[in-house]
Design a protein around this nucleic acid. Structure first.
Lengths: 205, 205
DNA sequence: TTCAAAATCAATCATATGATTGATTCATGA
DNA sequence: TCATGAATCAATCATATGATTGATTTTGAA
C-alpha cells in the first residue's frame, strides 16, 4: 500500500492543498478536464477524503475561485497613494502582475478558465468579477493620480484607459500566449500613450 | 413521434448546422459543459447521426475551431492598404470586430474558450493561434501605414502597440464582460495614445 | 490511558457520456 | 420503377465520473 506523504492533516491545510492541486491541474489540462479523482490523486488522498473536506465539485470550484482571488490580492503592491509618483506606482502594479505570471502561473490560468463557468456558477462569477473590477479600479486610481501630478495627459479618461491596460496585460495570462518577452514592450507602449506631452514645466519623476 | 425539423440534409450543410449548435452551446454553458448529445439535440438529430457526420468529439471541436476562424475571416474589412487613411482603416478594423461581438457573439466566445484547450488539442491551438497572429498583424500593418502618413507617433512600435490594441479589445469577447458600452471609449483612449502630437511643428529636437 | 471527534480509506452506487451496431427511411440516377 | 448509396434512428455498450456508505486509523483533550 502507498504510504501517504501527508497523513492526517488539519482541515484548513488540507483544503489549501486541494485547492492548489486543482489549480495546477487546471493550468496543465484546462478546466474542462478537471476531475475530482485527479485532484485527490495529486494531493495523495482518497476520493472520499476529498469529499470529506470539500463536499462537492461545485464547492471545489468555488474554493479554487476564492483562494485564487486571495492569492492574487496577497501579491498586489500597496494601494494607490496620491503622495507617491504615479509612474512608479503604475509600473509596480504591472510588475506585481508580471511576477505572478512568472511565479504563480496557475493563478492567472485559473482566473481565465473559471470564466467558463460564469453562465452556470453565479457565485464564482461574482468572485472573479469583483476582483477584476477592483484590479481595474487600482489602475484607474493611479492614472487619475498621475493626471493630478501632470504626468499623464489631461485628456486621459482614467477608466477606459485602465480597461485598456488591464485588458492588454490580461492577454499574457492565456495559456497559448507566446511567453512573457513582449510584456514590458506592450506595457511601455501603452504607458507612452498615456504620458503628457513633454516640454512644459513638467517634472518627470 | 417527433417530426424532424430538418430531415435528410446534405453532409456539408449538416456539418455546418452541427458546428453552429456547438458554438451556441459553448456560448451558453461554456466549453467544459459541451456534450455531443446536447449538440445533437439542438440540431434535432440522433446522436448516431451526429457521429455519422462528425466521427468524434475531437473532430467536432476541430470543426468548431475551423468554422469559427472562417466566419471571423469573412467579417474582416479589406486588407491594410498604404493608400488609404490609417485612422479610417484602424476604426474599420475595430468596427468589424465590434459588429461580430454584436451579431455573432458565439464566435468570440468560442475563440476564447477553445484557446484554453491549447495544451491538449494542438491542432485546434494551431488554427486559433494562426488567426490571432494574422489579426494582430493587420493592426500592426495599419499602425505602420499610419506612421508613414505621419498620423501616428514616429516612436510608436507597431507590433507591441498592436498586441495592446487587440488584447484590450479581446477582453470584450468574454462572457462576463459588462457589455459593449465601453468598447469605443476604450478604443478611442488607446488610439489617442497612438496619435502624433497635433499639427504644431512638434519636431523640436 | 481512554475515548470521542477528526481524518482517512476501500468498496460501491447511480448516472453521464462518448461511441458503436444494425436496421430503416429517403433521394436520385438509370 | 427500382436499385443503390446517403442519411437517419433506436438500442446498446464500455467506461468515466461525481458521490455515498460504513469501517478504520489517528489525534488530542480529559
Amino acid at each position: 500500500m502507498i504510504t501517504h506523504s501527508q497523513p492526517y492533516v488539519r482541515k484548513d491545510e488540507r483544503r489549501a492543498m486541494i485547492a492548489q492541486a486543482a489549480r495546477e491541474l487546471i493550468l496543465e489540462n484546462g478546466y474542462a478536464a478537471l476531475r475530482t479523482r485527479d485532484v485527490a490523486a495529486r494531493v495523495g488522498i482518497n476520493i472520499s477524503t476529498l469529499h470529506f473536506h470539500v463536499p462537492s465539485k461545485t464547492a471545489l470550484v468555488a474554493l479554487v475561485a476564492e483562494t485564487t482571488r486571495d492569492s492574487f490580492l496577497a501579491m498586489l503592491p500597496p494601494a494607490p497613494d496620491p503622495a507617491r509618483p504615479a509612474r512608479v506606482q503604475l509600473r509596480a502594479e504591472a510588475q506585481a502582475y508580471r511576477d505572478s505570471l512568472r511565479d504563480r502561473p496557475e493563478l492567472a490560468a485559473c482566473f481565465m478558465q473559471l470564466t467558463q463557468t460564469s453562465g452556470i456558477e453565479p457565485n464564482v462569477a461574482a468572485v472573479l468579477e469583483s476582483f477584476t473590477r477592483g484590479w481595474c479600479q487600482r489602475y484607474a486610481d493611479i492614472l487619475a493620480i498621475g493626471q493630478a501630478q501632470e504626468v499623464f495627459r489631461a485628456d486621459l479618461s482614467p477608466f477606459p484607459a485602465a480597461i485598456a491596460m488591464t485588458g492588454a496585460l490580461t492577454a499574457f495570462g492565456h495559456r497559448g500566449s507566446n511567453g512573457l518577452e513582449m510584456f514590458w514592450p506592450v506595457f511601455d507602449e501603452i504607458e507612452r500613450g498615456f504620458l503628457a506631452a513633454p516640454g512644459k514645466e513638467e517634472s518627470v519623476r
